[in-house]
Amino acid sequence: MNWFSAQISQEKLAAIAREIDERIRAREKEFGDVQAAERRAIGDLLDYRRAFVEDISYDRYLARKFVKMFPEPDAAAGEPPPRLPVRLYQKVVRRLLRQQLVFNQSILGFLEETAERLSQLEKKLEELKSSSPPPEKESPPERTSGGEET
């Protein structure tokens, strides 16, 4: 069974699959292992729980929204910023801070969970160390009676 299917004849499907293989091989010759390069670039970003905090902060997402919602006041005009957008801005910021708090708590929870697991493992290791008998000193091989060399 092919890794893909479509309502076309089996011969055509097989020909397409062959062509794909050939093209992938040709690219590998030219560019090397492109999948490995892609994986290196991505790093752990798609491992959602382990992604770096700064990678998934709201800053950038929101920065873009802010630009749309709150254009810079025209300083040259000397007019105070209108009240409604300012209130809206404050409301949005409060909401964002709450979201950021929730997010920080979830990360904190994850870190605490990991720390707890680590301390449990350390305890277990200590227990194992204390319960196992101390290693015996190497004794010289016993002499057997008789058979002494003359």
């Binding site: 959602y48 990678d55 998934i56």
Partner: peptide
């Protein structure tokens, strides 16, 4: 948050 991950990607 997923949107931000996609943008980072």
């Amino acid at each position: 948050r997923y949107q931000v991950i996609l943008e980072n990607l």
